[in-house]
Design a protein around this nucleic acid. Sequence first.
DNA 1: GATGAATGAGCCTTCATTCAT
DNA 2: TATGAATGAAGGCTCATTCAT
Lengths: 200, 200, 200, 200
Amino acid sequence: MLLRKEGRRAQKKLIKENKLLDAAYHLFVEKGITATAIDEIVKKAGVAKGTFYLYFKDKEDILEKLILKKSSEIVKKALQEVSNKEFPSPVDKFLFFLEYIIDYLSKNRMLFRFLKKDFSWVFYKKITENDQLVEIKKAKEMFLKNFNTNYSQEELEMVIFMILELVSSLTYSSIVNSEPAPIEKVKPLLLSTIRKILEN
Amino acid sequence: MLLRKEGRRAQKKLIKENKLLDAAYHLFVEKGITATAIDEIVKKAGVAKGTFYLYFKDKEDILEKLILKKSSEIVKKALQEVSNKEFPSPVDKFLFFLEYIIDYLSKNRMLFRFLKKDFSWVFYKKITENDQLVEIKKAKEMFLKNFNTNYSQEELEMVIFMILELVSSLTYSSIVNSEPAPIEKVKPLLLSTIRKILEN
Amino acid sequence: MLLRKEGRRAQKKLIKENKLLDAAYHLFVEKGITATAIDEIVKKAGVAKGTFYLYFKDKEDILEKLILKKSSEIVKKALQEVSNKEFPSPVDKFLFFLEYIIDYLSKNRMLFRFLKKDFSWVFYKKITENDQLVEIKKAKEMFLKNFNTNYSQEELEMVIFMILELVSSLTYSSIVNSEPAPIEKVKPLLLSTIRKILEN
Amino acid sequence: MLLRKEGRRAQKKLIKENKLLDAAYHLFVEKGITATAIDEIVKKAGVAKGTFYLYFKDKEDILEKLILKKSSEIVKKALQEVSNKEFPSPVDKFLFFLEYIIDYLSKNRMLFRFLKKDFSWVFYKKITENDQLVEIKKAKEMFLKNFNTNYSQEELEMVIFMILELVSSLTYSSIVNSEPAPIEKVKPLLLSTIRKILEN
DNA sequence: GATGAATGAGCCTTCATTCAT
DNA sequence: TATGAATGAAGGCTCATTCAT
């Protein structure tokens, strides 16, 4: 009985937090971060202003949590997609994974504009507390262990990070500014370059 | 007589503009962009508040001009350095050029933090009006024409852009967050990767 | 059985009230009254927010009760001390009583800062309900009846009040602001002045 | 021409500052300090909210300046009054000075409630920069030099301070709370006590 | 009695921008 | 050109208080 009561409360709490995250997400994507007032977020979420500060320290805080959430959602989807297919080699698998993300972001320009270059490659953030990310960490290990390269383990870690930075940075520039060219033109070159980096 | 007067005026104007740019630069670097109020800029520059709006549209405006100015300064220095040396190949020349910039930014963390990932590679901005950048454009052509690669001209342009994005993005992450590792560890790997990309 | 239950309940109640008073006291003394939020009080006391309002009307209310409590504690201690000693005259007795309080407050600057000039001389508050103060009232009468002065009873009451105001006001200023001088310098002059007032 | 312009500006500035001080004064006295919002002050003063912060750091700041202003006004009036009369002795002069202030405050209960016990005896604040207070300092010296007492100079300073504390503290209590009695009853006793202190 | 999530009025403060001088 | 006082919308944040559980 007590447990059920507490459970219901905790549930309600979670609902409110998600309402706020959702509202913030849509506003951030639509009008940009700076232009979005907390006033608007709570109005859209249908809660009182004070409630916001019950769940988040300030705008920065909710933003950070949002980026993490959205990033990990995308990465999870990509991993799911990858696990449903067979690939000739681990590198092909990895390239497919990257391509899936590039395509996803191409279709969600505004989301990407919001994630900016702060798209977090999740596995490289030092988030140990967050339970949701365990499977993502496993995926990372999977990639790392299966590449057949001349790189040492340490180098390989750095190379992967480098590649992820390159992908997000270039994809951003291409999608948002069409520089150096639209994404359709950039993508093949980008992927072939990555292959070149991994298969030496 | 009239001419001299006008000359003096223009000079005075330039002095004020530079005072403002200088003041803004130091404040941006020290306290961050958002945290810097125009009030402080004009105070530091020793001019009246209204004067700011005589030279710049708003904070964005002065920021943009500042980034361009600082970026082009760095690039110019790097090009100067390059032109004083002999290199075994154009790729070596280019790598030296990149290394010089990486080293420079390493020594000026705060500057980089301010330039953020907005470091502008100048030759890729569509700045046609700005006369100062002509020589930089020439430098770009020099690089482009002398690489001996399998890439088409169009591809090569994109690859260069890609490399520049990679350098700024990764160097930033490494210098500011030490991710994936400190710059000393990342640099050799980065440079060798770039060489791999260019020399196929 | 019922009685015992009720007793326990009443006891529990008292415990909570005291926890709240204690928590409030420490916070008021440490960070000041305005800067202390009820949120912090309940957190420190380890009770729920709503519980606060079960025992006190608002911040004012707990503050008032706290001042009364602390003031009466000090006065009681002073009276105890006095009753253990012999004095050449009632005036000497009274002066010793005052000196004891001054010394006590000197050693507890922060407490005094909190009591501010609101230190309550207890016997002058019209507290009829509060049972704890009966003995203090008796003490007051003791002082009043034994002074050998030219004052009428009514005048004497006022003079005593005047003296108490003077002591708290000047001691406060001296202890907290060192004005007109540190308490060591002020105390002898203050006491001799009071003697002069009483022994005319 | 330039001077006149600047003069006019400075004049206007002073007018605004005074408008704000006036508005704050009336609101503080009427509704209390905490209950007065800066919003109301600026509305009453007829200026924009931001203007407030052009002249004062915060509510504390304007309050402090106000207390100083009002206190010094009263003291000045009292000194003026004193200088127009002849007195049998310096002590009589001083007592008249005090009585004038007591009477003034009796007639302005609300003002006193606002000044609270923070009534500043001006000459004891270490205000050296403030030019307006020079004459008041002179007055202080006048009092100090002319008393014919057994006190050393240092003691006398302390005694005067003590008396001023006593007067403000007791008068406050008497006027605002009628404790230990209404001011009409307290005043004669207070003054005779002070005489006793000074004429030993 | 006890809880603590939710409230939302209310406050302070900042700052880009204007405009009379 | 240059000034800087004035603006006031806008926004962030706090906190005493309530009330369903």
